[in-house]
Design a protein around this nucleic acid. Structure first.
Lengths: 351, 351
DNA sequence: CTGTTAGCGCATTCAA
DNA sequence: TTGAATGCGCTAACAG
C-alpha cells in the first residue's frame, strides 16, 4: 500500500523540480527564465522534470521576489465629457491598484484634439523611458512621428479608445468603431420600421479616427439595408455642448421630417438640450447615442434616447495595462482575450 | 537638505508600520487581520501608523504566506445545451486557475431538472465541509432544505444562473432575469414596429425560477407597451431539441399570423430547425433568443435570430468565486461590483 | 498581551 | 557552468 509517495494535489515548486532533475534552485531558475549559462544537457534534464511534474510557475511569488514594478505613462486628453472623465477615473483607479499590481502609472493630461500637444507629450514621456505608454491617438503626422520614435526606443505603445494605423502601435485597446457604427444603423433602422424621413448624424469631429470609422460603418448599413431613409451629412459638434445644441436645433427646424438621429461622439448634454423639448412635444425621433453617462442613462429612462452604445473604459484601461505588461516582458498577447465589446443598452437592461 | 528620509514611492510594508508604531511584526499582523489579543491602546497606535503611512496590504504576499487554499464545490446540471456546456467549461477553467488563485474546486454533475438529485448532491457536498458551495438552483422543497442545512453548517452558498428566494443563499451570481425578459420584449416589440399578429414564447420549464422570471418580465412589457400584439401561452420545451422543434413547428402552423417569437430558455438547436425553413421561405418572424452559442451566433448572422441576450458564464463563475472567497473570509461583498450584465447582441456587434 | 522566528515560492547576488 | 544563501511582504507557530 502506498500512502505518502504521491504529491497529492500540491502543485510542484522549484524545489521539486530541482530535486527531480538533480540540480540546484538557481539552475532551475535559469532554465525557467531562459537565461544563459546552462549546459544543454542540464537544461534538458530540468525541462523533463518540469513537464513530468507539470510545473506551473507561481506568478505572484515570482513578482514578489522580483520586486519589479512597471512604470507606465498614460497620456489622456483633457476633454470635458462624461466618457473621457470616466476614462480618466478608470486610469486613476489603475494608479491606485498600482502597488498591488506592481505598476507605477503616470497620468499626463493634454489639450483635446491637439496633435502638436499630444506629440510633445509623447516625446516628453519617452524621455523618462517608461516600460510602456498608452495614449488616446490623433491620427496626424506629428503624432505618428512621435510614436515611431517610441518604437525606435523600444517602448511599447498601445492606443486607447482611438487608434492609429496598424503597425504604428503595438496594440489597440478600444472597440471596433466601424462595427459600432453598423450596430447603431441596424438599431436605428429597425426601430424606425416602416417610417420614412431623414436621419441626422451628429459627430464630434470626423478628423478623429474613431468618429470617422463609426460614420463609415453607419453609412454602410444605412445604404445596404435602409436605403429608404435619407441620411443627412454629418454635423460636427466638436463635443461642445453649446455648438451641438445649436446644430441639432437647427437641423430639427430645417428638417421637419427628421425621424432619426445618430450621435456618434461623446458629450450628450447639448444634444439632449435640443432633443428633450422635441421629445416632450411629442415629436418621435429615434435616437441612438454613444457612451453610457448619467445623462445618457437618464435619457434612456425617459425615452429621449432609444439605445446607447457603450465601451467600458475600465475594461479598456485594464486591457491596455495587461498588454503593456506583456509587451514589456516580451510575452505574446492573446488578441481574442483583449477584444473590447460593444455594449448595447436600452431602457430595460441598464446595469 | 533632506535626501533620504522620505519613503519616496516605495509603498510601506508591515515593517514600516511596526517601526512607526513601535511594536513588533506580529502585533501589526494581529491588528491588520483583526485578530484578538491586542490592547486597545496598542491597536490604536498601529491603526494610526497604518493611516499615516497609507499602508495597503500586499494581497499576493499575504496569500503566499498563508498558503491557504479555498476548497469549493460547484454543483452543475448535466444539461446538454451550449450554455450549460459553456458554464461547465468556465468552471473547468476556474479549476485550472486553481493553483494560482489558491482555490481547489470540485465539480459535481447532477441530472438536470432533478430537485431530489440536486438536494442529495448538496448534502454530499456538505459532508466534505468545503469553504463554499455554488449551485444552479432549482426552487423546490428538498433543495431549499438542503441549502438551509448548509447555512446551519456555516458553509457559504451562492446560487449560479438560477436563483432561490432571497435569504436562502448568501449571494446570487446571475443576471436579473425579469430585466432580461423586459429587454427581450422591448426589442421584439420595437423591431416589429407597426406589424400586428401573435407572438409565441418558448420556455424550457416554467418551474425553473430564471425562466419564470424572464416570462414575467416579458409579459409585463408586452402588455404595458405592446398591447396590440397577441402573446400566446408559453410552450415548454424542457430544453429538449426534438420537443422544441415540434412545438414551434406546430405553433407556426396553427398560428399563421405569428410574427414574433421569444425563446427564453437555453438550447436553440430544435428551435432553429423549426424556424430556419420558415425564414428561408420568406416568412418574417422576429425572434429574440438567449445565450450566444455558436448556433445562435450563426442564426444572427443569417438573420433567423434578430437579437440574442447573453449572460457571460465566465463572469458569473469568476464572480461566484470572488464572493465565495469573501464570504469564507467573512469579508463584505460589494454588490455593485458583482452585478452580471445582460448583453445584447445583434448581427453587427458580435464579439 | 507582545515579540522572535521560520517559512510561503521564487529571483538573484556572490562564490565556487 | 553550477550552487548556496539571502530576501521580497506577509503569516503563524511558538516563546516570553
Amino acid at each position: 500500500m502506498r500512502f505518502f509517495d504521491e504529491q497529492e494535489d500540491m502543485r510542484p515548486t522549484v524545489h521539486d523540480i530541482a530535486a527531480e532533475a538533480g540540480v540546484s534552485l538557481a539552475t532551475v531558475d535559469r532554465v525557467l527564465n531562459a537565461r544563459p549559462g546552462v549546459r544543454t544537457k542540464t537544461r534538458e534534464k530540468v525541462e523533463k522534470a518540469v513537464t513530468k511534474l507539470g510545473y506551473v510557475r507561481d506568478v505572484a511569488a515570482a513578482n514578489l521576489a522580483k520586486g519589479r514594478v512597471y512604470p507606465f505613462t498614460f497620456i489622456l486628453p483633457q476633454n470635458d465629457n462624461a466618457f473621457m472623465r470616466g476614462l480618466h477615473d478608470a486610469v486613476e483607479q489603475a494608479v491606485e491598484r498600482g502597488p498591488i499590481e506592481r505598476t507605477q502609472i503616470d497620468i499626463v493630461d493634454v489639450p483635446a484634439f491637439d496633435a502638436e500637444a499630444l506629440a510633445a507629450a509623447i516625446d516628453a514621456a519617452r524621455a523618462k523611458a517608461p516600460a510602456g505608454i498608452a495614449l488616446v491617438a490623433i491620427e496626424s503626422a506629428p503624432v505618428i512621428a512621435a510614436v515611431a520614435q517610441l518604437k525606435q526606443a523600444g517602448i511599447p505603445v498601445v492606443t486607447l479608445v482611438s487608434d492609429l494605423q496598424d503597425g504604428e502601435r503595438d496594440h489597440y485597446a478600444g472597440v471596433d468603431n466601424r462595427a459600432a457604427g453598423r450596430t447603431a444603423a441596424t438599431l436605428l433602422g429597425r426601430f424606425l420600421g416602416e417610417r420614412r424621413g431623414t436621419v441626422g448624424v451628429l459627430a464630434g469631429s470626423l478628423s478623429v479616427r474613431d468618429h470617422q470609422n463609426r460614420f463609415e460603418g453607419f453609412s454602410e448599413v444605412m445604404s445596404e439595408r435602409f436605403a429608404h431613409l435619407d441620411v443627412l451629412a454629418p454635423m460636427e459638434g466638436r463635443d461642445d455642448a453649446a455648438l451641438a445644441q445649436k446644430l441639432v436645433e437647427d437641423a430639427l427646424t430645417s428638417h421637419p421630417d427628421m425621424i432619426g438621429l445618430y450621435s456618434l461622439g461623446a458629450g450628450n448634454r447639448g444634444l439632449l438640450k435640443a432633443l428633450d423639448p422635441a421629445h416632450d412635444s411629442g415629436r418621435e425621433i429615434v435616437t441612438v447615442a454613444h457612451e453610457l453617462s448619467e445623462h445618457a442613462r437618464a435619457a434612456l429612462e425617459r425615452g429621449t434616447f432609444d439605445a446607447v452604445l457603450n465601451q467600458d473604459a475600465g475594461h479598456e484601461v485594464r486591457s491596455a495595462i495587461r498588454v503593456l505588461k506583456a509587451k514589456a516582458d516580451g510575452l505574446p498577447v492573446i488578441d481574442g482575450q483583449e477584444r473590447i465589446r460593444i455594449d448595447i443598452f436600452i431602457k430595460d437592461n441598464l446595469p
